Amino acid sequence: MIILILILFAIFLFVFNVLPVVKNNHFWAVLCLIGFIASGFFIVLNDVNHFGMSIEKKTKTYTLTSSSKKMNVLLYQGLGNGSEKIYIYKTNASQKKPLTTKTTKYSTKLTKTNKNSTLKVTTERYIYKNSLNKLLFGIFGNNNDLKHRYYHFRINKNWYILSTSQAKQLAKLISANKTTMQQEISTSVKSYLARELAKNPTLSQSQQKLLMQQAEIKATKNILDRYVAEIKE
C-alpha cells in the first residue's frame, strides 16, 4: 500500500506541477511533494528501523541427549579463528541427524549445572503492531523477520564439551587403548569393591552390584578425563 501511495503522490505531483489543471496548483504540488517525501521516508524507516513493528519473543527449552552413545558430550565446530562456535546437539536419543545452532543473528551462552543438560532457545522476531501497519508495509515481506536468536546451553558438569576434531582424536585414543581401558576399569572396580566389603562384609549381592556400577562409571570417567587432557584443539 505504501508503494501505491508513493506512486500516487508522484503522479499528482507531476499533474499539479506540469499540467496546471486546477487553481492554486503550486499549493497542491507542494502538498504532493511533501506526501511523496514522507512516503519515501517511512519506507526507508520501515526498512532500516522496522517502523510500525514490534518484537515478538518466543522461548523453548529442550532436554539434551548426548551426541555419543559411549559418553556424555556436547560437540561444537569452530568458525574462522575459533572464537565463534556452532554447537551440534540432539534433543532425543532416537534423533538420527543432530541439530546445529544457526550462524546468523545469534549468540550462545554456556553454563555448567548439576542438573540435566538443557538448551533454552529464545527467538526474537519483528511483527507488525497492527493491521494498518501490515497493510501499509506488508508488501515488503518483512513480517516475522528474525531479529536475534539466543542459545543458552546448561550442561551437566559431568558432560564433556569437545570440538569435532577433539572428538575424533578421543575416539582414536579409546579405540587404540580399548584393552588397556577394560583392564584398568576392571582392576579399579575390584579394588573398590574389596575395600567396601572390608568395611561392610554383609553387603548383599544387589548392593555389591550397585557399588560395582558406580565404581565402573567413576573409573571410566577418570580415564576419559585423562584422555581429554591429552588431546589438542
Score class of each variant (00 low, 15 high):
residue 1 M to D: 09
residue 1 M to R: 11
residue 2 I to R: 07
residue 12 F to K: 02
residue 16 F to W: 03
residue 16 F to A: 10
residue 18 V to R: 12
residue 19 L to K: 13
residue 23 K to E: 12
residue 25 N to E: 09
residue 29 A to H: 00
residue 31 L to F: 07
residue 36 F to C: 11
residue 39 S to I: 09
residue 44 V to K: 09
residue 46 N to C: 07
residue 59 T to M: 11
residue 64 L to M: 08
residue 66 S to G: 06
residue 67 S to G: 12
residue 69 K to H: 09
residue 71 M to A: 07
residue 72 N to H: 05
residue 76 Y to S: 03
residue 77 Q to W: 01
residue 78 G to E: 15
residue 79 L to P: 06
residue 84 E to W: 01
residue 84 E to T: 03
residue 85 K to M: 07
residue 87 Y to R: 01
residue 87 Y to I: 09
residue 89 Y to F: 14
residue 89 Y to P: 03
residue 90 K to I: 01
residue 95 Q to P: 00
residue 96 K to I: 06
residue 96 K to C: 02
residue 97 K to W: 01
residue 98 P to W: 08
residue 100 T to D: 00
residue 100 T to G: 00
residue 100 T to K: 14
residue 101 T to W: 06
residue 105 K to S: 07
residue 106 Y to V: 00
residue 106 Y to H: 13
residue 109 K to C: 01
residue 111 T to I: 14
residue 111 T to M: 07
residue 112 K to V: 08
residue 112 K to W: 09
residue 112 K to S: 14
residue 112 K to D: 15
residue 117 S to F: 01
residue 120 K to M: 10
residue 121 V to Q: 03
residue 121 V to R: 07
residue 122 T to D: 07
residue 123 T to H: 08
residue 125 R to P: 05
residue 128 Y to H: 05
residue 138 G to I: 05
residue 140 F to V: 00
residue 144 N to R: 12
residue 146 L to S: 08
residue 149 R to Y: 05
residue 151 Y to I: 08
residue 151 Y to W: 09
residue 151 Y to L: 09
residue 153 F to E: 01
residue 155 I to V: 14
residue 156 N to Y: 01
residue 158 N to D: 15
residue 159 W to P: 11
residue 160 Y to S: 10
residue 160 Y to R: 02
residue 163 S to P: 05
residue 164 T to H: 01
residue 168 K to S: 14
residue 170 L to K: 03
residue 171 A to V: 08
residue 171 A to H: 08
residue 174 I to C: 03
residue 182 Q to T: 14
residue 183 Q to R: 12
residue 184 E to D: 11
residue 184 E to K: 15
residue 184 E to Q: 15
residue 191 S to T: 15
residue 191 S to G: 05
residue 192 Y to I: 04
residue 197 L to R: 15
residue 201 P to Y: 00
residue 202 T to S: 15
residue 203 L to K: 04
residue 203 L to T: 11
residue 204 S to E: 12
residue 205 Q to G: 02
residue 208 Q to D: 10
residue 208 Q to R: 07
residue 212 M to K: 14
residue 214 Q to F: 02
residue 217 I to M: 12
residue 219 A to V: 07
residue 221 K to I: 02
residue 222 N to H: 09
residue 222 N to S: 13
residue 224 L to P: 00
residue 224 L to V: 10
residue 225 D to Y: 06
residue 225 D to A: 10
